[in-house]
Simulated assay, not measured.
Amino acid sequence: MNSINNDASIEKETESSNDERYLVPGLIRGLAILKLFDQHHQEMTISEIAEKIDVNRSSAFRLIHTLEHCGYLRKMSQKTYALNSNVMELGFNSLSKSSLTDLAAPIMRELRDRVKIAVHLSVLEGTDIVFVSNVQSNGPFTSTVHIGTRWPAHATVIGQLILSQLSEAEVIKRYENIQDWKIFSERTPRNIEALLERLREVRNQPFMVSWGHFNTDMAACAAPIYSQASGKMSAILSVSCPLSTYTEDQFRGEVANTVIECADKISKFIYV
């Protein structure tokens, strides 16, 4: 009988999980403190933390002291605190066992739901880009790109973006035996010299857009995904749709910004 009552109680609590009465304010504030630290705020004082999470200095001290006791913050001096290694261990043990495609999948679905078009994940293999994950549009357009589809890297914004991180010597080596440079539009590099010039132009760009340059009736936008461990590109996040789906200004503006935002989100979880 007690077991039945306990199950009913747990089920009732689960149904009420969105009820703010069940929230723990101290835990919310503690997590908010951990999220304050980033590349630009690696150390902060108690007063700075108190101001950012909108509590008095005494409350901030108790929260910081608790996080320090649990190993999530460490005291750097008499006045400042920084993240401790336990924070990384919270997620790294599981993230390091997950594949790139597993980690990217929920954010790719989020991107699809926001821009309503097909989303792709690609890597570089030799002189080709290979699609390793796709999320179909939830509109009438169905992408013909499938997992395992290969496209020539030199001719696509996806490929040019990921090739741009390589040294010129490495690019030349990859293409030294390529005789047939397939041309898809006036924007396609026609030889190694033209490709190297294009890569110099796009190096360090946050995204690239193709407006009918590869498939003449299609638009594509690509943004890099970086490894936290090496700082290098691990993959490319991209979207594609018929040219009629968006105006070019919309595509280069709001769509591109959303792709960059989601690529940055994925990058935060990649350690390979």
Score class of each variant (00 low, 15 high):
124 L>E: 05
115 V>A: 06
103 L>C: 00
248 E>D: 15
242 P>L: 04
264 D>P: 07
250 Q>D: 11
74 R>I: 11
192 I>H: 02
185 S>V: 08
84 N>T: 04
19 D>F: 07
260 I>A: 08
185 S>I: 13
18 N>R: 00
40 H>R: 02
153 A>D: 04
78 Q>N: 12
128 D>S: 14
216 T>E: 12
126 G>Y: 09
272 V>H: 03
128 D>G: 02
65 H>K: 10
179 Q>I: 03
235 A>R: 10
123 V>F: 14
235 A>S: 15
176 E>F: 04
200 R>Y: 05
266 I>Y: 01
176 E>Y: 00
113 D>Q: 03
68 E>G: 15
26 G>Q: 09
56 N>L: 00
173 K>Y: 11
126 G>P: 10
266 I>N: 06
102 D>P: 00
135 V>D: 03
105 A>L: 12
65 H>P: 02
100 L>R: 02
265 K>I: 01
235 A>D: 14
213 H>S: 13
196 L>C: 14
160 Q>F: 04
38 D>F: 02
264 D>S: 00
243 L>E: 14
169 A>M: 08
8 A>N: 12
38 D>H: 08
78 Q>F: 04
100 L>M: 15
215 N>G: 09
69 H>L: 14
94 S>A: 05
234 S>P: 12
210 S>Y: 07
89 E>D: 10
25 P>L: 14
138 N>L: 10
160 Q>Y: 08
41 H>D: 05
89 E>L: 09
235 A>G: 00
200 R>V: 11
266 I>A: 06
150 R>I: 13
199 L>E: 07
59 S>C: 01
118 A>I: 07
242 P>C: 09
248 E>I: 09
168 E>V: 08
128 D>M: 03
101 T>R: 08
23 L>R: 09
89 E>S: 07
209 V>L: 13
56 N>C: 09
263 A>N: 08
148 G>D: 15
231 G>P: 04
250 Q>L: 04
190 R>F: 11
15 E>I: 08
175 Y>V: 11
63 L>Y: 10
188 T>A: 13
203 R>T: 11
61 F>M: 12
13 E>P: 01
90 L>K: 02
228 Q>K: 10
52 K>I: 04
186 E>A: 06
96 S>R: 07
107 I>L: 05
76 M>D: 01
25 P>Y: 14
78 Q>I: 05
138 N>W: 07
50 A>F: 07
219 A>H: 08
109 R>D: 12
269 F>V: 02
200 R>D: 14
100 L>V: 15
83 L>C: 14
158 I>A: 06
214 F>N: 12
173 K>V: 04
133 S>D: 14
157 V>F: 02
60 A>Y: 07
216 T>M: 02
227 S>R: 11
61 F>I: 00
155 A>W: 04
7 D>Q: 13
146 H>Q: 05
162 I>R: 04
224 P>F: 15
259 V>F: 03
163 L>S: 07
14 T>R: 13
159 G>F: 06
207 F>P: 00
